[in-house]
């Protein structure tokens, strides 16, 4: 049973609602491996939510269900009250995957234009948005270079820009700090804080607990496909204890 502290918000104001989610993958000898075992979770709009857990805990699986990459074996997941299996549920979200994979034959600008067109943005709005985002992630000078020539950090930054192209109400970030140098991490943190100030919801997984501690309103800790702790940061972590110490205590 999850160590739930504090008021869970009502479903009407939630950006994410997950109920009794079970995900099974085919295992060896015809059996099944349970990646998620009845996960229930809510994230209110306007929050920065840190989704933590050791490797293999089910964080990425949860995100993949939310994004419609895999269907759950049982349970339900909704984004802004839309079933995640519906395409419409992804209109208000932005997603940055852990690996900054992209179309390397495109330029940075072309990638953003392509992403914007998939959201149905008009040409004028898209041109302005592209310029704005390139400045936000500090890639104005590299905008017309092929992505094949970008470094890993630059790919992560252009990936973040394409995740924000539709000015999403919910941003899902899978290990956003990976691939960044210390300055890049600070920039990511600033962007997350700026998103919160504009009332956006940020749901992100990370192993960088110090980053999580700095920016998150709430955290959920997943272990072996179950939510083992969930609540506001200040209420979960006792005085004199760091999030890292709390995380180790809860997970072990």
């Amino acid at each position: 049973m999850a160590e739930t502290i504090n008021h869970l918000p009502s479903s009407m104001s939630n950006a994410i609602n997950i109920q009794d989610l079970v995900v099974e993958f085919p295992g060896a000898h015809g059996g099944a491996v349970r990646a998620l075992q009845g996960l229930s979770l809510s994230v209110a709009q306007g929050q920065v939510y840190g989704f933590l857990g050791p490797n293999g805990a089910g964080k990425t699986t949860t995100m993949h269900v939310l994004l419609g990459f895999i269907e759950a074996t049982a349970g339900a997941a909704r984004l802004f009250d839309e079933d995640v299996r519906q395409t419409i549920a992804r209109r208000r979200i932005g997603y940055l995957p852990e690996h900054p994979d992209t179309y390397r034959f495109l330029t940075g600008r072309e990638l953003l234009l392509m992403a914007g067109r998939l959201f149905g943005l008009s040409r004028t709005a898209l041109n302005a948005r592209t310029t704005e985002l390139l400045a936000l992630v500090g890639l104005e000078t590299a905008a017309d270079r092929r992505l094949a020539t970008y470094s890993r950090g630059m790919l992560q930054r252009i990936g973040l820009a394409q995740a924000l192209v539709n000015d999403p109400d919910l941003v899902i970030l899978d290990e956003p700090a990976s691939g960044f140098d210390p300055l890049g991490r600070i920039r990511i943190r600033e962007i997350i804080v700026a998103l919160r100030e504009r009332g956006k919801t940020v749901f992100f997984s990370s192993h960088e607990l110090s980053e999580v501690e700095r920016v998150c309103d709430r955290v959920g800790i997943l272990a072996a496909g179950r939510l083992v702790a969930e609540g506001r940061m200040a209420e979960l972590v006792k005085a004199g204890e760091s999030l890292e110490q709390y995380f180790i205590r809860v997970v072990s």
């Binding site: 419609g68 990459f69 932005g94 994979d101 992209t102 179309y103 394409q162 995740a163």
Partner: peptide
């Protein structure tokens, strides 16, 4: 290449 993930995360059926 993994590009299917950011692609399907958009409102594309």
């Amino acid at each position: 290449q993994g590009t299917i993930f950011p692609l399907l995360a958009k409102p594309v059926s």
